[in-house]
Amino acid sequence: MTTENLPGLPEEPVARRGMFGVKDSGDTSGYNRLVVRRPPKPVSSRPYGSYFDEVADALEPAFADAIERVVVDRGEVTFHVRRERLVEVMKHLRDDPALRFELSLGVSGVHYPHETGAELHAVYHLCSITHNRRIRVEVSCPDADPHIPSTVQVYPTHDWHERETYDFFGIVFDGHPALTRIEMPDDWEGHPQRKDYPLGGIPVEYRGAEVPAPDRRRSYS
């Protein structure tokens, strides 16, 4: 059988096999051969719509090589920025009269273990009071080299937020004035919000039946 005229097989990693979380029994659901792949990385092209084009126009001339991709999704814009240029980009976003993102709403980490080479993400939400706009800046770093430059110099409010992201994800923010744990005890091992960190918990007896720990319960995802 020739496969030349068939569409190429999706390359994205497998998100899930089967249905209904069935793992240990036979094919009782009839869906065991189902393979669900992760959606491809979204990339948006111009025009982005809304005020996003104006923001991109003000940002791109100076930082065309710093922006990996732009994603417009559900009425929000995300600029994926290379970590080497992050501090410059943030400074420009804050100071440029056409951008003026004076207020940062902090840093949030996300762990995507399936994104090889970009497992750890730091997400910054910025708000411009001058123009009443919001954007999102996203930076990624590999698990093997979890370093992202600190932006405390640009947005002093990132002090605690970066400490929190370091605490929970193990992202090291280079140049942070005092990068220590903030929520967990100082001598804690591991970074709890990572996907490979177990939730823990013990089974609980309720009305004669045993309810397993939350991470042992059946998952439908």
Binding site: A15, R38, L105, G106, H111, P156, T157, S221
Partner: peptide
């Protein structure tokens, strides 16, 4: 102050990641 919820989904029935930008946390700085 501004209470923000950063909600991430991977397409499943459970949140992939939820982060709260709590105003108390930021204001305490």
């Amino acid at each position: 102050g501004e209470l923000g919820a950063h909600v991430v989904s991977d397409g499943g029935t459970r949140p992939y990641r939820v982060h709260f930008r709590d105003p108390s946390f930021t204001n305490l700085q």
